[in-house]
Design a protein around this nucleic acid. Structure first.
Length: 104
DNA sequence: ATGCTGACGCTGG
DNA sequence: CCCAGCGCCAGCA
């Protein structure tokens, strides 16, 4: 049973891997009825300039525990969705989202 | 290592 | 209002 390699863990914190998990963490925390923009998620994940990368990560994520349908564009449009853009719109409507949660 | 691509964002025209 | 041009970053060939 090897003990945890702190060095490696620490290094991971500033790696793309970490960035990715932070994104997922953030998205996982979006409450029902609310939505965040890609930019917001990027900021909460540590890099405001990485909005585009956020999309890239979410696009490749298929974990149903992650409500990636609650992430939309800054201009208010939906953006894309793995399981069908229509589905995304439908779900959001059903959840009755109001505005973006900038205060997180 | 290098070059494209894309669920983005902002500035102009 | 619509669109092209740039900048940005991670993912992948």
């Amino acid at each position: 049973m090897p003990m945890v390699n702190l060095k490696k863990i620490k290094k991971n914190l500033r790696t793309k891997d970490a960035f990715r998990s932070r994104i997922l963490d953030v998205v996982r925390g979006i409450p029902k009825g609310a939505v965040l923009t890609y930019k917001e998620v990027a900021r909460l994940a540590g890099n405001e300039k990485a909005a585009r990368a956020v999309g890239a990560v979410l696009r490749r994520n298929y974990n149903s525990e992650i409500p990636c349908h609650r992430v939309i564009k800054t201009d208010g449009t939906f953006g894309g969705y793995n399981r069908g853009i229509e589905n995304k719109a439908a779900i959001l409507k059903k959840e009755g989202y109001r505005a973006t949660v900038n205060s997180l």
